[in-house]
Design a protein around this nucleic acid. Sequence first.
DNA 1: TCATGTGAAATCCTTCACAGCC
DNA 2: GGCTGTGAAGGATTTCACATGA
Lengths: 226, 226
Amino acid sequence: MQRDIPEVVIKRLPIYYRSLQQMAQMGKDVVSSQELAKSAGVTATQVRRDLSYFGEFGKQGKGYSVELLLSELRRILNLDRDWDVVLVGAGSLGRAVTRYPRLEQHGFRIRHVYDHNPNRINTRLNGLVVEDVSLMPEQISREGIRIAIIAVPPSSAQEVADELVRSGIKAILNYAPATIQVPDDVRVYDIDPVAAMQSLTYYLEPYESRRKRKLSSASDRIDITS
Amino acid sequence: MQRDIPEVVIKRLPIYYRSLQQMAQMGKDVVSSQELAKSAGVTATQVRRDLSYFGEFGKQGKGYSVELLLSELRRILNLDRDWDVVLVGAGSLGRAVTRYPRLEQHGFRIRHVYDHNPNRINTRLNGLVVEDVSLMPEQISREGIRIAIIAVPPSSAQEVADELVRSGIKAILNYAPATIQVPDDVRVYDIDPVAAMQSLTYYLEPYESRRKRKLSSASDRIDITS
DNA sequence: TCATGTGAAATCCTTCACAGCC
DNA sequence: GGCTGTGAAGGATTTCACATGA
């Protein structure tokens, strides 16, 4: 598999995948780059270019087979298997993660939940027993688990990441509001709602007065384009 | 305020802000672009370039005053005020959002939680009463709220977004696993853990056998650089 | 001497525009 | 006629390298 595909492209593939799944569910057989682009919020050229990194999946004059494209994306993204995951941190954030059903639905199986707080260890949590984080390296290693979710306070995020990397973890979904440093062969994806909000407020007028805007009626509704 | 600053830059500013807050807490007075870069996981040149879009905040030969930079970033990102937010969707995802304390800690105040399910309306949820979504437009408009969090199923995400936009919302944090279309003057930031996971699995070997790796000892630990 | 701020260069990514094929 | 796949162009972002000032 070639390994110089832009990371931005890789981040868009799951979005295409999501759109296609929805289309398949609605019984759509064939989709044009135009339609897929609209559904994914990008341009048609971008869809075609992104897919062309991996092969020629379309039919000229016709478009792409929804089923074929789904199966190609599954293959490319390694989604035609389930993945074991460990979760570190059984605080409120970690608990929310265990209760988020979409991960399981998409084949990401949380195999262990770890914490170091004795009050949390051995408590049950959505069908999982919280284990002592000291058991973590051995279990990850023995079970060959390569994906971890970090949901600990920022002050311990780095040491947890270090331990995960030593144990063989290669992919980390990081909910801790901290940047973690990992070797080149480990990937980290950060999720920080506060940081997201703070980017959004940049674009807002700082002190627009209340009541300045009125409830718009159907007639002056802006046409959606973006 | 100039308005042609790359969006990537805006997304990095909250990360710098987060790093600086941590440094301030540790009593650090002055920071170099080098140090800030390390803490934020970017390059020193990038830090300097990013900041230079907004002014000259550093002292040559010295670095940046942590306090000054924090206050400049607060000003740039409009964080020297609190922001009212509405949350749409009181399902498990919406409930998790209300229980996530960091938003409040950073000045994002959830003022209303809406749902359309009668079983949820009027239930209490972390100090908030779930209201009927039909009250939403009028309340958003009257209270001048400009930020919304969408936590509804993907099938209703677009109609909720349309209604939010009509009511005057200008910034949306979208937890629904769906792309939503909004006018140019509205910003959307998507959070989709499943999509994030699916990008991560791209980089994993699909079928590395179990037990292939061993628990590494301290001596063969890879040096962290990334 | 040390670290910022920034032109210029390099790299990365997106879009244009169209040949080629169904 | 319609739509893909892709060279080439264009635009955006990052990095280099260094003048400048503390």
